[in-house]
Amino acid sequence: MHRRTFLALPLLLVAGMSLGAERPLRVGMTPAFLHDQLGLLAAWRDYLQQTLKRPVEFVQRDRYRETMDLLQQDKLDFAWVCDYPYVSMGRQVRLLAVPVNQGEPVYRSFLIVPAKDTHTRSIADLKGAVFAYADPLSNTGYLAPRFEIKEAGYDPATFFRRTFFTWSHRKAIEAVASGLAQGAAVDSYIWQSLEKVSPKLTARTRVVKQSEAFGFPPFVANRSVSQADFDAMRAALLDMSHDPAGRALLAKLNLDGFVAGSPDLYQSVAKMVASFGQP
């Protein structure tokens, strides 16, 4: 036994030294945040590599579906996804960490219209309009507005004259700002982050209504990820707020930090999903 430990020690050392040779942790990045800030992503990856002492790879996909597929194919270890895909994937993934924004691990769906539109008071006023959805698997950009339409007694399939997907919240905001769409529902966290980065763009939109709070788009871990990796990654994320470099990154991400979170946070999403007859 002792001997084996003795033998294993140099192996560990070698493993520690030849960092590049080890299989990297693959993290899927989605439009759940402003994922087109490549400089920030590179800095964050470097930070995680240093914290975890192993290579980390960020895999960017514009569509949740693609990230979900990669998880299901075990091509990703972790992913930052929207709460709707998290709920949809059920037992495929485990909740790893929940980002904290403005002190709470929650966000909302913003109903936005072009700034010129001063009369719209609720989504009901947008009947027959051209409406931009973010992603068919987005909660705040698709599920929540459709649920609201349904609650109001309309058929979400025919309520708008024309709908289209922009595949990201940021582009949904651009679609409204440019006048291409007369309305859109977007992630409150992204709208607020964008307000800091490009205030001119958000100023061309008006937030009509905020939805109830939903659990913040979580970091999830694939079922296949070992407990050790799971723990290491969770610790790395949760500890970011205790570290100056981590805090700087969090500030750029417009986040306060991460908490372990609980699946209970996502019950309201699960309910909405269920109302559309999905698992």
Partner: peptide, 12 residues
């Protein structure tokens, strides 16, 4: 269908 100036030439 779409235009580069959607405010002037709106969709539909």
């Amino acid at each position: 269908y779409v235009s580069s100036l959607p405010e002037r030439y709106p969709v539909l």
